[in-house]
Design a protein around this nucleic acid. Sequence first.
DNA 1: GGCTGGAATCGAATCGATTCGATCGATTCG
DNA 2: CGAATCGATCGAATCGATTCGATTCCAGCC
Lengths: 353, 353
Amino acid sequence: MNTEASSPSATRPNLAAVAALAGVSASTASLAFSGAGPVSETTRAKVLAAAKSLNYAGPDPRAQSLRRGRSGIIGVVIEDRLRDAFRDPINIAMLDGIADELGTAGLALLLLTETGEAGADISLAPMDAVILVGCSTQLDRSVTVFRQRGIPVVAIEAERMPDVFPIDLDNRDASARGARHLSSLGHTNVAIVSLPLEESHARGPITREREAASSSYTATQRSLGVRDVFPAARGVVSAGSFIEEGLIAGRALLERGDKPTAIIAQSDLLAVGVIRAAEELGIGVPAQLSVLGFDGVHVEGLAPYELTTLVQPAVEKGSAAGRAVIELLEGGHPEPVAFESELRVGNTTGPAS
Amino acid sequence: MNTEASSPSATRPNLAAVAALAGVSASTASLAFSGAGPVSETTRAKVLAAAKSLNYAGPDPRAQSLRRGRSGIIGVVIEDRLRDAFRDPINIAMLDGIADELGTAGLALLLLTETGEAGADISLAPMDAVILVGCSTQLDRSVTVFRQRGIPVVAIEAERMPDVFPIDLDNRDASARGARHLSSLGHTNVAIVSLPLEESHARGPITREREAASSSYTATQRSLGVRDVFPAARGVVSAGSFIEEGLIAGRALLERGDKPTAIIAQSDLLAVGVIRAAEELGIGVPAQLSVLGFDGVHVEGLAPYELTTLVQPAVEKGSAAGRAVIELLEGGHPEPVAFESELRVGNTTGPAS
DNA sequence: GGCTGGAATCGAATCGATTCGATCGATTCG
DNA sequence: CGAATCGATCGAATCGATTCGATTCCAGCC
């Protein structure tokens, strides 16, 4: 590794050096590179030749971003560790929507995770705007900093906060719709498998206290939707949106005496895990147990089951966030967006036994 | 959205304004924030109070990165679209390794994709260093720019390039080891399911021409390793590392007359797809067909199979890249790293029929 | 009392480019 | 032929902070 250039000058060339060699002023050289002004063809050629001879790679992005007040970087804050967040395809789909939109607009995507300690760090990078995905309200402090800096903030599925542009999903209504589907099939003893409620990702039963203190808006809204139909629905909290966690939660619910006839999982991966638990215990799906998911992602190896689930437009959610960021950066005032999920009935729900 | 602050001054406060209000010089105010120099407690308090009263969020990262020559941002360039790259857990594991190291060092991760057109864009962001993962040599131009800028470049599983720090995997040797395993079981008619060879992700047979023109070092190395043992091994190219693609490739290989007795897939997902294809066609695994994978990732729903595969240390690969970047940034000269994969024998390979 | 040393603070240069207004020629039009 | 116009180029201010060397001030010491 010979990181140092072979040129004798220890210092890297800058625009001024290029301009000097080309025999023009720095301002002209700048125009030659950016193309944002009238420059004669011969002058541009001279500047480019000088740049090449000096091994100059073009204007320094750092200086550009200071002067222009824009860095072209959009922060995307994910709540979990990457490892966890990317295990659920729903998050990848959303990120893909964001990346598409930003990439088209020539913006880069800075991936940040919501680590409690580095909260100060989050606001340290030169970002033009921020997208929070499924983030807790613990980010209050960071949001304050963003506001002070005049950085637009877009939040996907988050509790309302002042000066934060919302991209919403009908978590509560959709969950209620799913619950009514089960209700219409005659189910009354329904249990919930919840997404993690705290940052600690602790398992255990759903309690009012935990929900009240929860940092996950999505999880609590989905539970509320279920209770709009089944006020007494109980449930357990998983440690993450993984099949393995659904399995654990499913066992916890199905090994006990008072077995539910239907389980509403807050993600498809959790639902698949629940089905696995039922298989393990010799409980037929949907004959003895109905299982409902959420997200509408494709899960490998689920055949012959076709999961009944609430399909959400994940990619669109991401691209809507991307578009909102772009419009906010351009000084526009986009309309808040709210997406709706659709109940897709498969063969994992059936009449109550 | 009220992006504009409510303060009457249209302009955002800067360090100078804070310093003026606190009755100190800008240099002292800077020290008060950075803590990089002796500042009396009372002065620091005054500065902080002034900052609060002006709604000042701290030094502007843009200006800091210009002055310091560091932005704290590391670019990570992924070859595929995110959607595709993140469908294979192996990539996520690696990214997680990278993110861990960088996060610990207080560096942020800029996610970039290797889109042909935006090649210019890639070098436009204010990055301190770059990690290329499984990238093609098409990035030559970008690498040139990075070198001119003095930005260290680390490449994971890439062809050797000057001034690029390599993180290697024994793709060829490991594949040869896997092939010998099959050879020792008596197999002679072996076929390969290759990772995509071109950016176009075109399917079709493996040919010398395609391999010669290939942009995927990993794919060609793995094929070479197989041919070290089975010089005449033929094969097909998949359109991506997905189960579905393995299924397509498996059908293509198994529906023909001259069926192989063993298939070497270049990823575990592809291998799973091949197994599905065999099931579909009523071909027993491993009785009639042995299947070998690569990566050693956990695939849901594969039971009762336990894939024979080459286990690579994916997370370690990522963290090694992260550490290398950090050391290079500190001016160190780290040793190149080469990882080895280990053959893990499951129940998908057996004696040739 | 004069001298030394160290802590606290300040001034000014610097990082590298962008951009606005001014200037200078050359062309065109009346 | 003079004036208006337009294109090309340049000077200088600016973006917002960091940092080095210089200065000030006070305590401690012989």
